[in-house]
Each structure stands twice: as C-alpha cells, then as structure tokens.
Design a protein around this nucleic acid. Sequence first.
RNA 1: GUGACUGUAGCUCAAUCGGUUAGAGCACCGGUCUGUGGCACCGGGGGUUGCGGGUUCAAUUCCCGUCAGUCACCCCA
Length: 427
Amino acid sequence: MAQGALPGFRDFYPEQLAERAYITGVWREVMRRYAFVEYDGPPLEPLDLYRRKSGDELVGQLYSFTDKGDREVALRPEMTPTFARMVAAKANSLRKPVRWFSVPQLFRYERQQKGRLREHFQLNADIVGEPGVTADAELVAIALDVMRELGLAATDVNARVSDRRLLEALLLHSDVSVDSLPAVYAVIDKRGREPAAISREKLAKVVSSGAIADRVEAVLECADVETLRSHYGQVDAAVVHIDRMSDYLRYVDALGFSEWVRLDLSIVRGLAYYTGIVFELFDTAGEFRAICGGGRYDTLLEALGGVNLPALGFGMGDVVLGELLRARSLVPDARSRTDFWVAADDDALMTDVMSVASRLRRRAKSVEYALRPQQLGRQLKAAGSAGASRAVLLKRDRYPGGEITVKDLRTGAEQSLPIDEFINSLD
RNA sequence: GUGACUGUAGCUCAAUCGGUUAGAGCACCGGUCUGUGGCACCGGGGGUUGCGGGUUCAAUUCCCGUCAGUCACCCCA
C-alpha cells in the first residue's frame, strides 16, 4: 500500500474538501453578518510564543522542532497568541471594539482519537476593547448563529454558560478553602465524563468534608438565575456576579438565542486564562466532544502583548462539527455543478464542440466535453455521471446551418434553436 | 506518552481444521451501440493478504516485532 498522509493528517479529496468548504463558507458568512473582518498570521511561530502563555507543560503537545537556522519553532496550536501580538502591535490605531475573525489550520502533536486529529481548521472570533457583558452576549450569539445556519436547532445543540468569578464566590461561600479551589475545578471539569458517584467521592476528598461537598453539589445544580437568587441572593460576594449573569442572559434573549443557552456552573474551561463568562457548545445527545468553547480573557493581552485591553473570543473546530453534521445528515450534496456538456454526433465536429464550449465559458458557464472522440451515447453517459444539468448537442446535418439542440439531462426534454440565439439567451 | 481492539482489490466483505493459481459485489475502463445517457448482458485492469521475522512439507490463517487505523486514558488551545 502506498504511503499515506502522516498520522492525524487528512487528505482532502474533492468530496471532503466540499464539506470543509461548506463549513468554512458558513463560518465566513455568519461572521460577515456580525460585521467581523478576517485576518491571518503565520502557521509557523517561535516556540517561545506558546511557552510564555502556558508554561512548559503544554510544550509536549506542540508540533515543534528546530528549523535549519537552529530556531525552535512550532506549528501554531492556537490562534490567540498570534492574534494578541497583532492587536497589541497596532492597539492604539485600531478602531474599538476590534471585531476580527480567522480560519487558521492548527496543529498539535498527540495521538489522534475521535474528534481530535493532529491538524484541524478552527473558526476564531475575538472582540477586543469592550469590557461590558453585551460583548459576551454578542460572542455566544455568533457561535449559535453558526449552528443555526448549518441547519442545527436548539434541540440539537446547547450553549452551556458559566462565570468563573460567580462560581468562585459561591464555592468560597460554601466553605471551600482558597487553596483547594484548583483541585475542585479539576473535579468539576471531569464531572459528567465519569460516574456521578466517583465525582462525588473525589469532591468530598478534595474539600475534606462531606457536608461541604454537598453544598458544592447544590451550587452546581443551579440551572437558572432565579434559583441562584433564591439561594444566594443575600451573599454579598456573589450578587454582582449574579446580576451580571442575569444581564447577559437578557441580552442573549434579545439576540434571539435564549432557548439555546443553559446556565451550567460546571463549565470550567481548561486553561486558566479565562477571567469572566465562559461557554461551551455541546450536542444535546452527548454523543460528541465540545463543538466550541470560549469566553472572556481580560488579562491575556497584557500578558502576551503588553497592552491592557479587555478581550473575549471563541474557537470552533471543523472536526467535531463535521462529525455532528454527518451524523445529522446536514452536509449538502457535493455534486459538481457542471452547467453544460457539449457533445456531437460526428468526430469531425471536435473543433466546433470546443468553440461552443469556449463561447459558453465566456458566459461564465461551467462546461465540459469529451476530450477524445466518442460515440454520442457514451458522451451523454459521461455527461450524466459528471452531473451536468444540460447537454448541448451538435448534429452533423444541422450544426453547419447554425442549429444546436439543448437537452435537459434530468427530464430528457430537448429544444432546437440557432446557436447565436441560445448563447444570447444566457445571462 | 499508556492501554485495548483491528489490518485481505479504490470501497464493503469472503476464503472449511493451516492445504492447489486468494474470490464476490460496488466503483472504474471497454464491448454489444456509424450515433440520444441512466437499464441489461459480456469483458478488462487492478493484490508482495500493511511491513519484517519465526514455526511448518505448506501461513491470509498460528507466534513475535513493527507500522497504520479505531477507541479510551493523559490533555484539551
């Protein structure tokens, strides 16, 4: 067997590329509706760009190597550091808020599994310069609008939203110690991916008290703002965060996505740079990995680029999304859109076939014809399997008089008319 | 990086207990068809059974290694 693509990398045959182009096309269309502009950066970056943000622990998962100039480099694993650098470099001259998006191909070095390869395409959308929660609502609306545009409904996909600050306030109110917070987050993050009893056990161990674990479970079970208010409305440290969540959900409602959004305080995004409202998109059947994740990272631009600007964004990959769309039969048929197949019933008409094809192409039509002389029957067969919608037939006893026959390959209907009239009838 | 399972034609699969020249459908190409496609019939190309080694008179079949795929763990940008 011939050498295939490297492990975790994909060959995109026309059928697969059509699916990818469909998804990225929807991404770009939705971003246009939200008045975002597209940017891009280098696929290869200095390794240090990622070391600074995440420390050495993540370096093991980077697709990194030493180049011929002895530079330590990495294929970009995410877009945010590049984005932060680009924004920081021109921060003063950019109109705020910055609304930019990108569709980079990203890389990681680890063993592939379902929904995770070594390479994928990801929609990145970021807003910079707006601290208000309206921006958070705008951001999640974008992600959900992509879902809707792809043919998915609120019954297929949900956004689960949380706020680290709110969760922290409620955990501290539940007598979780500050020191144990990171461990508690780790257990919470795992919840749902393992049996409830095991999570409960781990939780009790981490907070070193069954009573506290019960209180933490109670916090996590709050699924709407009303419940939060009735249970924790008197907690001073939490009120401001509950109010903010309440505003956020009102704005999401105004943007038309309230039924897609669920409050879920157990959403703890992996990397620690999120500072505010965070969200993840999941299929409601729980069949796939997270489709999309994002949130507010107000301090990251300062850490990476040295400018103090609030920011938020999300990433949405093509791999899980493609799996979901295929499972729901929502990938449009990728048949070629050949408009015309030109055929003749005489080999001597070869140059006439070519010149008719040329005239059609000048009218912006997609045109194919048999590159070698063939029987008319075979030409029509080829036209059918190419997916052409119509055939233009040149007949040896009619074409010299300027007449052609247009055949609809779906209905079989034919119409004969002068070639010039036909060409002029096209847009 | 760790573990489990799986590798036969482009795809989906078959091949008795280890036994002759590894088969079929689909797809592709051609013929019937000096002239209007999809149908039908006939034919053709295509295989180092992932790769390497071992056991055996004999390996697609049994054993070991390796590579790849799938799934899970780790981790999640």
